[in-house]
Design a protein around this nucleic acid. Sequence first.
DNA 1: GCGCGTATTGTTAGCGATCACAAGAACGGC
DNA 2: GCCGTTCTTGTGATCGCTAACAATACGCGC
Lengths: 338, 338
Amino acid sequence: MDVRSVRSPAMTDVAKLAGVSHQTVSRVLNDHPNVREQTRLRVRAAIAELGYRPNRAARALVTGRSQLIGIVAQNTTLYGPASLLAAFEQAAAEAGFAVSVGSVNRLDRESIAGAVDRHLDQRVAGLVVIAPVASADDALEGMPEDVPLVTIDGDPARSQALVTVDQAAGARLATQRLLGAGHRTVWHVSGPPDWYDAAGRIEGWRSALQAAGAEIPPMVAGQWSPSSGYDAGRMLARMPEVTAIFTANDAQALGLLRALNERGLRVPADVSVIGFDDVPEAAYYIPPLTTVRQSFHEVAHAGLELLLQQISGSATEGEQVVIAPTLVERASVAEPRA
Amino acid sequence: MDVRSVRSPAMTDVAKLAGVSHQTVSRVLNDHPNVREQTRLRVRAAIAELGYRPNRAARALVTGRSQLIGIVAQNTTLYGPASLLAAFEQAAAEAGFAVSVGSVNRLDRESIAGAVDRHLDQRVAGLVVIAPVASADDALEGMPEDVPLVTIDGDPARSQALVTVDQAAGARLATQRLLGAGHRTVWHVSGPPDWYDAAGRIEGWRSALQAAGAEIPPMVAGQWSPSSGYDAGRMLARMPEVTAIFTANDAQALGLLRALNERGLRVPADVSVIGFDDVPEAAYYIPPLTTVRQSFHEVAHAGLELLLQQISGSATEGEQVVIAPTLVERASVAEPRA
DNA sequence: GCGCGTATTGTTAGCGATCACAAGAACGGC
DNA sequence: GCCGTTCTTGTGATCGCTAACAATACGCGC
């Protein structure tokens, strides 16, 4: 009696206590139909009494699948990826899956492939890859066919399961808002054009101008960083004809706002600005930033659902989900001065 | 010949190809000493030829330990936690470990315990818990003794392995900088006082004032959010005697800057401000924010090292590591007006 | 009463690694 | 030439679970 077992209880211990075979315990655990209600209860009681928890490694060994979902993301320090990651983790936890992260520093083929490989090592049940540039998509080319895969932000032209945000629609929203306020045209500080997101926003901006019959000014090519917004701002501040600017993200807008401020230009009185992302700080920029919000929560949920469908084998081939962004009105847009 | 095996190769396949027993393959894989060099090479070649990768589930089953590290964090959307997570993931990957995240929404006992439990289910090799408030520490009380555990930001009074940033030192740095610029005293907008970080910053601020013989003004209690900085700013802006403010983090400082700006106060000409965190955007606030930087990279590395020591059994009892923050000078500090 | 289908439970055989132990080879000392 | 070490390799059991199959019980129709 005094000799307490050091190791945690296994299925056979539960079986012994409940007076059944270990297989019956397994059936109860996996909700198999053909178990008598009374037996099921007895097993449940034994499980509770022993504080038994199934050994996932053993299960993974025999089924060949773990309850782990791998996620490959880049630069998870930034607001966007970090939010996506958090949303994913939460959604997965609700579905009984754990999430293993593999962040990469660069989005080249090699880095991505390495991260994917590490996850495959762990025998993940499925894989989510955030592939915002073509090179990341490319790295997925040689993937084994049999592991469920969902791509986020990837190339819609590929036939994988994919979740994206309709960047062009968001850009159109922003551009139309500025045109609607009476601006003759809208300037755009872009993100790195090899990113799908940036390309989509450029396209949406262009198409909205075109549809409105407005002049299409040259695009100012930038990066995602505040510093590139700052640089663009210094340049645009010298051009009096610039009265409305749409930036590819909020960080850029922050830098832009500072550059305009330094040059003595007031936002929105002199220049109107719209960003993209709706980071938590955007409401406290000077002035509060009107911006486009993309719901990472929706993206994560849609992505997980697609993945779970594949895992359970009920997947429709190459399904794609597109999430619509929305415009968040704050105080950085006004009519142009007469 | 044409019948290609569907399943991935196992150790016995490698053994057969190399003409040795599976046990010898295992020895090569685990770098056991007593294997003849020639044999080792033959096995390595066979491994490469088959593209063999060991099955972690099988290994975990027999050893009782996975190559997974669990990490419990709150609100991983914020810059601080997100950075810590990313740094940890990277450090762990270098050491051959995968990282499983469990974010929690609230820091109460129950949430933390739940996240810990889910990780224990996965049979993690070790656990990192970010425990910035007492309730999180409390949740760790009932933890099984045998799983390696490192706490980040926890209570130094407890005897666990712990990594913290010396918040008080950082606050002293900021306060002394402002006093050094000639301000009679420094006001402080605090974080939620039940957070260890916030408490440390309050204490450092107080002690620096005390040491300098400066008057200690009432503390303005805030949250971590920009809105609380904004609220504090609106109040402080009405008080002409306020010339120097130290905020508990950069997000607060952002809100504060906007409130001051709205009231027509210039920073740093009228009021000097120092923040805490050095978020990437801080350099692009208006004006660029002088702030205190804590190196998440160092924290993560120290934490992982402590954890790996425990996992390998070479741990010194209850070791604690303290990381020193540094001051980052920008443009939000100046001498007070005469 | 016999046969058959269905619900419930048990038995056995792996999954793919590690561990403990044993066996054979090589080598030096007497 | 025999014996005891040390180095190297192999054998068999085992981890805790699920899958496949077997066995038993029960009910029903003829």
